[in-house]
Design a protein around this nucleic acid. Sequence first.
DNA 1: CATGAATGAGGATTCATTCAT
DNA 2: CATGAATGAATCCTCATTCAT
Lengths: 197, 197, 197, 197
Amino acid sequence: MVTKQDEILEAAIRVLAVQGFQQTKIRDIAKEAGVADGTIYLYFKNKDELLVRLFEEVMQKVFRILNTALEGVSTPAEKLHCFLRTHLHMVEEEPEAAQIISVVLRQSTAFVKEYKNALFAKYLGVLQKILQEGVDEGVFHSDIDPMIVSRALFGAADELALAWLLSRNKASLEHTSQVISKMVLHGLLRAPVEEVK
Amino acid sequence: MVTKQDEILEAAIRVLAVQGFQQTKIRDIAKEAGVADGTIYLYFKNKDELLVRLFEEVMQKVFRILNTALEGVSTPAEKLHCFLRTHLHMVEEEPEAAQIISVVLRQSTAFVKEYKNALFAKYLGVLQKILQEGVDEGVFHSDIDPMIVSRALFGAADELALAWLLSRNKASLEHTSQVISKMVLHGLLRAPVEEVK
Amino acid sequence: MVTKQDEILEAAIRVLAVQGFQQTKIRDIAKEAGVADGTIYLYFKNKDELLVRLFEEVMQKVFRILNTALEGVSTPAEKLHCFLRTHLHMVEEEPEAAQIISVVLRQSTAFVKEYKNALFAKYLGVLQKILQEGVDEGVFHSDIDPMIVSRALFGAADELALAWLLSRNKASLEHTSQVISKMVLHGLLRAPVEEVK
Amino acid sequence: MVTKQDEILEAAIRVLAVQGFQQTKIRDIAKEAGVADGTIYLYFKNKDELLVRLFEEVMQKVFRILNTALEGVSTPAEKLHCFLRTHLHMVEEEPEAAQIISVVLRQSTAFVKEYKNALFAKYLGVLQKILQEGVDEGVFHSDIDPMIVSRALFGAADELALAWLLSRNKASLEHTSQVISKMVLHGLLRAPVEEVK
DNA sequence: CATGAATGAGGATTCATTCAT
DNA sequence: CATGAATGAATCCTCATTCAT
């Protein structure tokens, strides 16, 4: 059975994805959830807390999907591609949740200030671990700083997600993830001079 | 001499960078600028117009700096590095302006909806041109989609900027730009099989 | 039981009668009604809508009284007198409502522009019907234009009402209605020359 | 030469007639008069004083026209018709001034409260004098109260003026003045029974 | 637990008036 | 005299939150 709290959160996701953070009134969420305004306050201390819980809800789903996707993938390079591919896949599958993460959460100053949120850090941590593995196994350049690169990769994926969410023409993101993975793994440069030597 | 309009814009940048869009009251900007509330409205139709003008102001400065930096750089690879380096440099030099672009503007739904804003498109356009040049000259892989890659690179740079802005320990971003440029140009993979041949 | 909406309307009538339209602040009405400012907006979309509803409220009461008074009156001449008498009577009985109609409503440009308001037209219509009846029955001069005369009679009654409302010495309007009715029915001229012939 | 003060007053009449009292900003009048905002305050203490002076201006013009029209008219009945006819004529000839008197002035609570303004009383006085003359000469019924009847006649004329000002189809008011004069002088009743005897 | 009517603090915006030039 | 930039008090309306039922 789904609790009323979950119903409210689901409703909030639907409404926030469409209207944005500041535009969404408690009343809108209550209406979408089919409860009275006051009922929201029985389950959440205030609007900000609702947002936090909503973020956690969404991130949990993300982790579930990501972990499932990474199962059985062995090499760091493949894992990296899998990570990027899954991130963009989720955007296609769960555009509302993606909208929340890429757009809505940034609208809350409080949230951005706590950007180093535990859950977000954990998400970045998955990437960092993959990168570190690659370095340790000797397949990635050793002078890579996993902290920096993980952040860059997340930014790249997030920006592509945002572009897709805001575009009318929703072409598949499969191609996009191929291009990015290739760039990240092999670089833009072709036939590097060093090879000739 | 600086016009009062510019003084207000400068004040708005300072206040917005700290407080965010919705949190910033007209009164705050007026106080920071040292004028009366009503004076703001002699120069800007309303709060939204102020934001738009502020964005244009900031972007103009960005373009000036970027173009200056790119002057005299000849190869696509060097240009790419220059672009990323300059982007991150600007964040260090003008953290308030950077804060506006990376954080504040995303708080305005209207702005995100018009994300493909002419000025933003122009910024991405600079990147795209560099990538296309590289492809045309045969130094970049031909299967690179400049549209996708430019977006990804912007996202990466923007995210790194955001991370820096939000962190306490403001280590130089020079190292960061080196790492990213290297990754983008050479890829993460070391000693690719092809090299052996 | 009186609804809160009615309480607000009654309070608005009291306040508007004293202060006028533009001078009356929402806060004044709220205070008079004993509710919070925001409560007004639970029942009325905005200040203008409150005015419209208030006008309808007042006019309904006017019609109720007018129709009751005209019941059982048979000849057009008597009906005319009854109309004028009732109009002035109402001013004495409900000075606040009268003040609203004679003074306050004219302060709203929007209202004056829609002066040919359905309810006002209906009020004039009662007069027109009486006049037409008189003409049809052959007791009123046939060259009377009911449209013009009804308007003139309303204007006369309204002006007398206004004079009374604004005067300190509130002598009964009964005498006034007698004088006007007589003038309207028999004219100012005494023993007209034509009669002698 | 026309003084700047007069230019401002003329401009105010034009603007007020179109926009109404509350809608007219000092800036609108200044613009229409071709002067700076502050200049208004060199000639008028404040907005209210400007309105008072404007009323006086308009009423003076009205008196000039009315007195000219009444010159050479001898009998009270003819004078009465002349008064009504001239009032309505002026509305056609000077709709802006008429608009000011019939509509705009009523929008100022302060004005309505001082409705028994000296100038307005003087205007009513002309009517009262005509009526008294008629009574004294024995041509008007002796039980007519000039105070009441003058007010009623003014109200009738004013209302007809208002109706004309607000209507699209501006048919001549000549016919209207004929109808009203006849009604006022001879009454609505036709061939009263008493006359037959 | 649930309701939703009521609250009232807060903010964008307007505009009569002032005053330094 | 004339200007018009600057002022800032004043007001309508919104909406997160409360609480009596």
